[in-house]
Simulated assay, not measured.
Amino acid sequence: MVSLSQISLKQLKEKLSLPKPWDNVIIFILNVLIAIPLFLIAHQNLIELPWAYNFDRVFLFIGIVVVIQLLLRLLKTIIVLCIFIYLLVLLYGTVFGEYGFQRVFEDYRYMIYAMSENPKPQDIIISKLLPFPNKSKIIDAVDYSNPKVRNFALSATTKHFKDIKYPESERLMVQCFAVFAEIKKRWNYVNDPKGREYIAYASESLQHFSGDCDDHAILMAACIKAVGGSPRLIHTGGHIYPEMLIGTQADLETAVYLIKQVLFVKESKNKDIHYHIDERGNIWLNLDYTATYPGGPFMKEEILGELTL
Results as ranks from 00 to 15, higher is better:
1 M>Y: 15
5 S>F: 15
9 L>M: 12
12 L>F: 09
14 E>S: 07
19 P>N: 10
21 P>D: 14
22 W>A: 11
26 I>A: 13
29 I>Q: 08
31 N>S: 13
35 A>K: 05
44 Q>S: 09
45 N>W: 07
50 P>F: 04
52 A>I: 08
58 V>W: 14
59 F>M: 13
60 L>A: 12
60 L>W: 04
64 I>H: 05
66 V>K: 06
67 V>W: 04
74 L>R: 13
75 L>T: 14
78 I>W: 13
81 L>N: 04
83 I>E: 01
89 V>N: 07
91 L>G: 12
93 G>N: 12
93 G>L: 04
94 T>S: 14
97 G>Y: 15
99 Y>E: 02
102 Q>M: 07
106 E>R: 04
108 Y>A: 15
111 M>S: 10
113 Y>H: 06
114 A>V: 04
116 S>L: 13
119 P>S: 09
125 I>F: 08
129 L>E: 11
130 L>C: 08
132 F>R: 04
134 N>Y: 14
136 S>Q: 13
137 K>E: 11
138 I>C: 01
139 I>V: 12
140 D>F: 10
141 A>G: 09
143 D>S: 08
143 D>G: 06
145 S>P: 06
146 N>S: 10
147 P>D: 08
154 L>N: 11
156 A>Y: 02
157 T>W: 00
162 K>A: 07
163 D>A: 11
164 I>K: 10
165 K>A: 14
168 E>H: 13
173 M>T: 03
176 C>E: 11
176 C>S: 09
176 C>G: 11
179 V>Y: 01
182 E>M: 07
183 I>C: 01
183 I>G: 03
183 I>H: 08
184 K>R: 11
184 K>E: 02
189 Y>T: 07
191 N>L: 06
192 D>Q: 05
195 G>N: 14
196 R>K: 15
198 Y>P: 04
199 I>K: 05
199 I>H: 07
200 A>V: 11
200 A>E: 13
201 Y>D: 01
202 A>T: 14
208 H>K: 14
209 F>Y: 15
214 D>F: 06
216 H>T: 07
217 A>V: 12
217 A>Q: 01
218 I>T: 10
223 C>H: 05
223 C>Y: 12
228 G>N: 13
230 S>H: 11
236 T>D: 00
238 G>F: 11
241 Y>H: 15
244 M>P: 00
248 T>E: 01
249 Q>K: 13
250 A>D: 10
251 D>W: 01
252 L>H: 00
253 E>L: 00
254 T>I: 02
256 V>A: 03
258 L>T: 00
261 Q>L: 01
269 K>G: 05
269 K>Y: 07
273 I>F: 06
275 Y>I: 05
275 Y>N: 03
277 I>S: 11
279 E>A: 15
284 W>K: 04
285 L>R: 02
289 Y>D: 05
291 A>H: 06
292 T>K: 07
293 Y>H: 02
293 Y>L: 01
294 P>N: 13
297 P>Y: 05
297 P>W: 00
301 E>A: 07
302 E>V: 14
306 E>L: 02
306 E>A: 14
307 L>Q: 09
